[in-house]
Design a protein around this nucleic acid. Structure first.
Lengths: 122, 122
DNA sequence: TCCATACTTCCATTATTATCGAATTGAATG
DNA sequence: CATTCAATTCGATAATAATGGAAGTATGGA
């Protein structure tokens, strides 16, 4: 992930409604939710919700699939992990620093940890 | 950290210049940098930079101290950690999920890990 | 094929954000 | 206390984002 896509992911999350939507989807898991359910749970007008979902999708934080008449939106955990990795990558770069990168996998319940190379200088 | 302050922290980082500024300060460490150095390294006009620094400060991601004529800005690692915690807290909530929270400490070079309670169901 | 459902796109309005020249504040120094 | 240096605040302009009513598109069923 480079700066540009980090900015767009951060921008996507930097809005009350969208952060709520994203958190709801993350909590909901891989199964996802149809737009109508999201609208109902968060009481957001349909066009507004559609707009925000498009933003989140464009930022790579969620994805859609169709199920009959419904469009089912679900969190994209890879997208989220990418962002976390980017932020922590830029933390802890200089000597004498240590940082774990959180990687979440809702389906397999495992920890994957990159960058375990801790050069504990200082 | 609640939603409101998460939104403001995410919003603060969701801008090319500010993300660059923040990354620069994170890389620089607790010592920080005077505004002039930041302006020079990133080639941002003084009033614009001042505006962005105020945003980051307001979001709790950086802090200032004065040294003579210069104002020295430095990353606030607690602020960053808080945001990471918030994001990962909302990830991995349902059963069958595991997630580490990254906490960075540039001065002491240690790993602090909250929420190691992995209920590996499923 | 006609209708209802489930969303999205269009469009206009309003609100917020970014940018930088010019003026200002605050601290050090002769 | 006048001057310089470092950075901020002011103010005007331009750009971007959020919102929701009305109209449009795709799907499934009578």
């Amino acid at each position: 992930m480079e700066t540009t896509s980090a900015v767009s992911a951060l921008g996507a999350l930097a809005q009350e409604h969208r952060l709520e939507i994203f958190r709801l989807l993350v909590r909901t898991g891989a199964g996802g939710l149809p737009v109508g359910d999201i609208a109902e749970k968060l009481t957001i007008a349909a066009p507004t919700l559609s707009f925000h979902l498009a933003q989140l999708k464009h930022a790579g934080l969620i994805h859609v699939r169709r199920d009959g008449r419904s469009l089912i939106y679900a969190a994209n955990y890879d997208g989220m992990n990418g962002l976390m990795e980017f932020l922590t990558e830029n933390c802890c770069r200089e000597d004498g620093r240590v940082c774990t990168v959180p990687l979440c996998d809702p389906t397999e319940a495992r920890i994957v940890r990159k960058k375990p190379k801790m050069k504990t200088k200082q």
